[in-house]
Design a protein around this nucleic acid. Structure first.
Lengths: 232, 232
DNA sequence: CGACGCATTGACAGGGCTCAATTTAAGTGG
DNA sequence: CCACTTAAATTGAGCCCTGTCAATGCGTCG
């Protein structure tokens, strides 16, 4: 809680603070509390009462939604500068997803009343949050459309490209997904199965489009994936 | 524009005005302009610059998203009291979906700057909009999960139940969808095909769960659909 | 009455899920 | 450092769901 925060950096990496003067940002951050989490920690569970909204400072989390039948879908990955658990601003809400830490993570959280107060004090916060949420709707609508219209291979390509843009790290041999990810997770991210993903990646590996080892994926030829996605 | 509006009614039917005094509502409505549309009219197209946000006063519209491959998905139906085209508040945005009128419709629209001004004047508007949009995200996330985890029959049942709750009219022989809807639309609403929907509805009709004629569906035994959805 | 759009039904094929058996790789503790 | 353990990944075989294509039926409106 007494961790020294690099306010400037946080301000720059997050569109949550767009149009808000840096001097206010310190104020806003002071109202929140810091939490450090390690891999596989659960920040909150789907169904828990939604008490806090979080901004990710470091690391990554995945948001998953559980289906009665036991299946699980990955709704999105959350990277530094991104907001999560925005439902908190709704009256008496529950978390709609589960947030699980993918690699060592630092977040800052605000309670419901705090965030409502902040929104009243700085209306720009409400507007920024609205914009963030609107972008997220767009993302979900797109993925919904893709899920209903595209075949497995295309969807797998899309998810790799999305993750790459979101959390890609440029190495000499390609763009590397900078957090551990399993085939099962990749499958849950695009509504296929672990087996289909394995077969598909095997094929791509043979073509030299990607490299992969346990928990790691590097895309060596992103362009091919783009072509695949855009074909028909 | 000079249509006499029943402000009281609008105020009551829409959660857009939650926590806002009725006297201000008149103010807010005055800032917008009314449009009357007939079946099959397009209020806006996906890709057009997003200039206006709309509140539906009467009728229904469907929001569809088009896929490159030519397929189309119905993102949601919009009924009286509901807001649409919320993207408008984003900078230099485009409409992300197409809004097509399903039955005679009356909407009120506000320009981008107007709505931003209103949000600054009445912060509660921004908060309400945020809540509306958050509910919509939840809806999309649920449907995404269902699409990836459930079989066609379950999804068709779910879409009927959703539409029923949203736009159902209680008649003596069951609950009737109070706008014209085709099998193709139903299929586009749940990511199946016209043919699968036809077969499924035929089966249900034989079991006495529904009645249907061209463009009309009545659910005579909703409970069976609920059971179907909840089974496994 | 004719024509068009919507709905129905059958036949068929194939994508991808399921299940099972192995292989590979990473981590752990003596 | 190596044997051991366990989780992840690979691969094959089979089948079922559901999409596709084609033909026909039906109802509604001009």
């Amino acid at each position: 809680m007494k961790t020294a925060l690099n306010i400037e950096k946080i301000f720059n990496q997050s569109n949550f603070f767009n149009g808000i003067s840096v001097s206010y940002v310190a104020d806003i951050l002071k109202a929140g509390t810091i939490r450090i989490l390690k891999t596989n920690d659960i920040l909150f569970h789907q169904g828990d009462p939604a008490t806090r909204i979080y901004l990710v400072l470091e690391g990554q989390l995945k948001l998953t939604k559980l289906h009665e039948a036991g299946k699980e879908a990955i709704i999105r990955y959350i990277c530094p500068g991104e907001l999560m658990a925005t439902v908190t601003v709704l009256k008496k809400g529950e978390y709609l997803v589960t947030a699980e830490v993918v690699s060592k993570t630092k977040v800052i959280g605000w309670g419901r009343q705090t965030i409502l107060d902040l929104m009243n004090r700085y209306p720009q916060i409400a507007i920024n949050m609205l914009c963030i949420v609107l972008e997220r709707i767009d993302d979900m609508q797109r993925r919904y459309l893709e899920l209903s219209a595209e075949h497995a291979e295309q969807r797998i390509a899309r998810s790799l490209l999305r993750i790459m843009q979101h959390a890609g790290q440029k190495l000499q041999d390609g763009i590397h997904v900078n957090f551990p990810i399993t085939l099962k997770e990749l499958a849950e991210y695009n509504g296929t199965t672990l087996y289909t993903v394995s077969r598909t990646l095997s094929a791509w590996r043979k073509k030299g489009w990607i490299k992969s080892r346990r928990n790691h994926i590097t895309i060596t030829d992103p362009h091919q994936l783009v072509l695949l996605v855009e074909s028909e």
